[in-house]
Design a protein around this nucleic acid. Structure first.
Lengths: 333, 333
DNA sequence: ATTAGCACTAATTTTCTTCAAGTGCTAATA
DNA sequence: TATTAGCACTTGAAGAAAATTAGTGCTAAT
């Protein structure tokens, strides 16, 4: 690909992103000061190389997935954010007092508003959390709350009604044993270790050990469940309002994918940096591009993903995530 | 309306619910052993009365909203649930160990699966909860968790990092004061009372009283926020897969209504019993029917709503909610 | 009170026509 | 040798006309 061909590809991709219409040779004449015939020849070359496609034999050209990919990797210049956008973004950082979940929620909303695409944030699943402490707090005569804390600062509670024959004291003692023996164990393994290491110990001490065991077992089990649930979504209809979604089946397909939680969960990003998955490269849906990045808010990690048509404004979204990442981690005390 | 006309209306509504096609006079001949001409005459009467509509001058009849209403109020017989459905429903009650939010989630999923409509559950907002207890639990040197419990059994926690100059002891003492003075106060008022009643007291005792005050203020404030957020949704695409949603604009309209949280919140039901809001009667969307009922799971109250096309299987859904209500409150210990 | 018969209507489907946008290729040109 | 003008050709989109279908309302007969 020579320099002129690259310029041409860039122009075609950017035009198509703007207009959503296949680009014909005439449209590029003025810009390149060439006749349409020459442009046609060049476009034929780009098509043979796999960067462009035609919908049918006599239509204009449209970028292929490979074309988009070449564009984002070699041709695109990250765009400056407008003052307006920066202003909106800054409201995320101002409200420092909010709970993390609120910060994230706000973040998600603002992003989808600015980009006009769909935004998903996935809280880190609990895999990497390890047990820091478990506490038993009596509330009323026969009601207690079990509090589970992890090294990453997640805290969850679950309440129990005690049966007659269980004393709070026994629970508290058991919690102390657990705190001695299982601190630092990955939260997902705690239930197992509970059975093999703790159960025998309390069996020797407490009559109703089964019931006591079950309470802790439930508490830890619940923890994992709750912590897999952090999915924040915003702007689903933004995506559907993109002009490519103009037929019923396509729309329904996307809507039901949004509903499929296990699919959404797969969006989680493992790599560092900002990564772009175009069409078939992403697991979510062939017809979209997913741009992902890990985030880190006040020590909480997770994935932020923007879902748009393949014809996304890559330059803007990337600039955007760069800004966000920089400022989120600056804020990370 | 004489008896025959009622029978006719019933038949038309039920046929239309099944077939989604306007019902012509011929289709009813066999069933009523009348000629199509007679049926046509009767249908003309029902139309004049407002129970039926035509899409255009030579189409079959379709029930009007008034027709559906008459049907559900006077003609419909609640349907028996099938053994299959009952079986699925019972899985809701079996898993008694789950957290409430899990029970509800499961409930919502099963309902939308059985009905093929969309299900929403709105957790009761925290208005009617009163403070039962607040506890301070030390986790690490400078980390504590504040635990807020209400009379209705909701428990939330929030963690804080303490600055150098605050001792856990002071927090615990303050929590005891709050527990003496503010138990029974509606949770939404606690922040206020905190300022006027508690702040002066601790101001006299503790140097850094502002910081201490802020911690409790935050904890209670957070509580309200978290507890307004309980919206469970399932089966959005079920509704969209109903044959009436066969055009892009209609689908997009519904999708964006699903996204509008303040609109969804309005679904909350105030009346007792099972209530049916057909078309214009509901605030959500003209094109749907919303069937709502208050629920009560283990002391937690809220609204359960099933959203379907106006051409809903009313008999089934109502039978269904009746079963659910009966069994949920039986289970309510 | 019911029905057969018929003229009429409106949506849907099919077919045909025309139009616009664009291509590839060939031969001429700078 | 790279560029261009010219032309035949392809395809989808848009529109018009015709045929088909499923129904109605009304009248007159039973």
């Amino acid at each position: 690909m020579d320099e002129r061909q690259k310029e041409l590809l860039k122009e075609i991709v950017e035009s198509y992103i703007k207009t959503v219409r296949p680009i014909g040779s005439k449209a590029l004449c003025k810009k390149f000061k060439l006749s349409s015939a020459t442009i046609r020849n060049e476009m034929a070359v780009l098509e043979k190389l796999g960067y462009l496609e035609k919908n049918h034999v006599s239509s204009g050209r449209v970028p292929s997935e490979m074309g988009y990919k070449y564009y984002v990797e070699n041709l695109m210049k990250p765009k400056e954010l407008t003052g307006d956008d920066v202003l909106k973004l800054q409201t995320i950082f101002k409200n420092n007092e909010l709970a993390i979940s609120d910060t994230i929620n706000k973040c998600v909303e603002i992003i989808s508003e600015i980009t006009h695409y769909t935004t998903v944030v996935l809280g880190k699943s609990s895999i990497e959390n390890t047990l820091q402490k478990v506490s038993i707090i009596p509330i009323e005569n026969d009601k207690i709350v079990a509090l589970v804390c992890t090294n990453k600062g997640i805290v969850e509670n679950k309440q129990f009604s005690l049966e007659e024959n269980i004393s709070v004291d026994e629970l508290v003692k058991t919690s102390e044993i657990i705190n001695k023996m299982l601190v630092g164990v990955p939260i997902t393994e705690v239930s197992q270790r509970l059975e093999y290491e703790i159960k025998p110990i309390i069996a020797a001490r407490i009559k109703q050990y089964e019931t006591v065991y079950n309470i802790f077992y439930d508490a830890f089990n619940d923890f994992s469940k709750k912590n897999e649930e952090h999915v924040f979504f915003s702007g689903k209809s933004n995506l559907l309002n993109q002009p490519e979604y103009n037929n019923v089946t396509e729309i329904k397909k996307i809507v039901s994918k949004f509903e499929d939680e296990s699919l959404v969960r797969k969006i989680e990003e493992k790599e560092q940096g900002i990564n772009i998955y175009i069409g078939e490269e992403n697991e979510f849906d062939d017809s979209v591009t997913v741009i992902k990045s890990k985030y880190n808010i006040k020590g909480q990690e997770g994935t932020i993903a923007i879902i748009g048509p393949k014809r996304m404004e890559y330059d803007k979204v990337v600039a955007f995530l760069e800004y966000l990442n920089k400022n989120l981690s600056n804020d990370d005390k």
